[in-house]
Computed example of a mutant assay.
Amino acid sequence: MFAIIAVYEQYKQDVFVYLVSITHNTTLSQDLVSETFHSAIKSLSSFEGKSDIKTWLFSIARYKWYEYLRKEKPTISLDDLTKYYICDECEPDEIVAQNEVARRISQLLLREDTRTRDIVLRRIEGYSFYEIAKKWGISEGSARVIDFRTKKKLKEMLTREGFEYE
């Protein structure tokens, strides 16, 4: 129990700052911090320590943000989520203006095999690597590698085509 409290005390501010950077809303970020740590506590047994705990918490926080977006704006499109996927550092306001990039990403994904396309689309929709790996019967690491390589490939293709996404 004390370890959980220590983790919370050590990382709550970092998670909060990260959430404010993507939501631009301090009140919402405070709520999402609570949800993030609640989910982290529930899934603590599945944390294998293969990544830094801060990275793990950030991925949960990001998932909670996506979950909020889906609930708050039920009509959020795959294109909107795709814009978040390709640009790790972009501000949400900048991303929303880049509809053409999202459409092109969707077209490029059609060239990928079914498993790769599904893994990327699930990440775009906010699924965790654990959930994706479970669906495909692969390790979380494999799901991460497939996602990373595909994202890198998409970025390279977009750059060659002259698209700006950052």
Rank of each mutant, 00 (worst) to 15 (best):
G49C: 09
L78T: 01
F129I: 07
W65P: 03
S106H: 04
A102L: 03
D88A: 09
R123Q: 12
Y68L: 08
A97N: 10
D80N: 01
I86M: 06
F47N: 01
W56T: 10
I95G: 15
E100L: 03
S77K: 05
S46Q: 11
E89C: 11
Y68A: 05
Y66H: 10
A102R: 02
L44S: 15
Y66A: 10
G126Y: 04
C87S: 15
R115G: 04
F47Y: 14
E112C: 13
L44G: 09
C87N: 15
W56K: 07
Q107H: 07
E89K: 12
S59L: 00
K83T: 14
I86W: 10
T82Y: 00
K134W: 00
S77I: 07
Q107S: 15
L81A: 01
P92E: 04
P74F: 09
L69N: 11
E72G: 01
L78D: 11
E94I: 04
D118I: 10
I60V: 06
N99A: 08
I105Q: 03
R70H: 13
Y84F: 14
Q98W: 02
Y63T: 07
E48R: 15
K134I: 05
W65F: 03
Y127M: 10
R122V: 14
L110G: 15
Q98C: 05
D93M: 12
E94T: 14
T116W: 09
L81R: 06
R103K: 15
E67Q: 15
I60A: 09
S46V: 06
I119E: 06
I76N: 05
Y63N: 11
R111Y: 09
K54V: 08
I95Q: 12
R111P: 05
W65N: 03
T114D: 07
D93S: 14
I132C: 04
Y130K: 13
L78M: 09
Y130W: 08
K71S: 13
S45F: 13
L110F: 09
R115F: 11
R122Q: 02
I105Y: 02
E91K: 11
K134A: 12
V101L: 13
K73I: 11
I86Y: 00
E131C: 08
L44M: 12
R123G: 06
P74I: 07
E89H: 07
V101I: 00
I53P: 05
F129M: 09
D118W: 02
P92T: 11
W65G: 03
E89F: 05
Y127D: 02
